[in-house]
């Protein structure tokens, strides 16, 4: 469904990704793991058009993503939950969700999608009129995921959804990801909680210093001694 080949990207003169190739098949859940500063967020940003690529190609169901203007990428079915949630703090929860439905082609399904998100996160319905910035970290993460789901995406890309959350809440986030998978969504996820994320995804890529170091199924990687040493402190 989503295919990256030989993607190079960065910021100004600084290159953060070198010849990254990766693909996510329909219905699959794929994780990208790697140390801080490896370029994971950069990878997410280049997929959703927040930053331009230096070279390479990205296609979504055989349509070139790199040739699509940034604001139309969400219309191709790619929804991005950015690092640190990035909610509109001084807007209500419902207004935040509404922003997820901004593109004209989504607007007539607004009520239906809102109902879907409220069903997935009943907590959001309770908080609909609260300013997003005043919610707890876990609630904010739900809101951010909900906002991305408003456009009924084909693939959801998530950048460290569990960052900064208490262990119990992290647990909930992973349960949530399983539920989202249950809805038939394709997922690409960046995570630091390597052990936990490998339990909910099918495959994973290891990104280090801007290049893909390793790739494998979740079970393979869970058993790999290298991975255990590098990421799970075993």
């Amino acid at each position: 469904m989503l295919t990256l080949s030989q993607v190079n990207a960065g910021y100004g003169d600084f290159q953060a990704l070198f010849d990254v190739s990766l693909d996510v098949r329909s219905g699959e859940a794929v994780a990208v793991i790697g140390p801080n500063g490896a370029g994971k967020s950069t990878l997410m940003r280049v997929i959703s058009g927040m930053i331009p690529a230096f070279g390479g190609s990205i296609t979504m169901q055989d349509v070139s993503v790199l040739d699509t203007p940034a604001h139309q990428i969400v219309g191709m079915g790619i929804a991005h939950v950015p690092e640190n949630r990035r909610l509109f703090a001084r807007m209500t929860v419902e207004d935040n969700l509404r922003m997820g439905c901004f593109s004209p082609q989504f607007r007539d399904r607004y009520t239906e999608r809102l109902e879907f998100v409220y069903q997935l996160f009943p907590r959001m319905r309770e908080r609909r009129d609260q300013m997003a910035g005043t919610m707890s970290g876990g609630e904010q993460q739900m809101c951010a995921i909900g906002r991305a789901l408003m456009s009924d995406p084909k693939i959801l890309i998530m950048d460290e959804p569990s960052a900064g959350l208490a262990p119990v809440i992290v647990q909930q986030v992973f349960e949530l990801i399983e539920r989202i998978r249950g809805e038939g969504l394709t997922v690409l996820i960046v995570e630091q909680n390597v052990k936990q994320v490998l339990k909910v995804v099918d495959r994973a890529y290891i990104l280090e210093a801007g290049t893909i170091r390793m790739e494998g199924t979740a079970t393979e990687l869970l058993e790999s001694a290298d991975i255990q040493k590098a990421f799970m402190g075993m």
């Binding site: 990035r86 509109f88 509404r98 922003m99 593109s103």
Partner: peptide, 24 residues
């Protein structure tokens, strides 16, 4: 309105507006 919401949103976070499908 949607546009009105976008106008309020863009003043808070310009960078992520493309993710919402907004042409800044």
């Amino acid at each position: 309105s949607y546009l009105g919401a976008a106008i309020r949103a863009i003043s808070q976070d310009r960078e992520i507006m493309p993710l919402m499908g907004v042409d800044t």
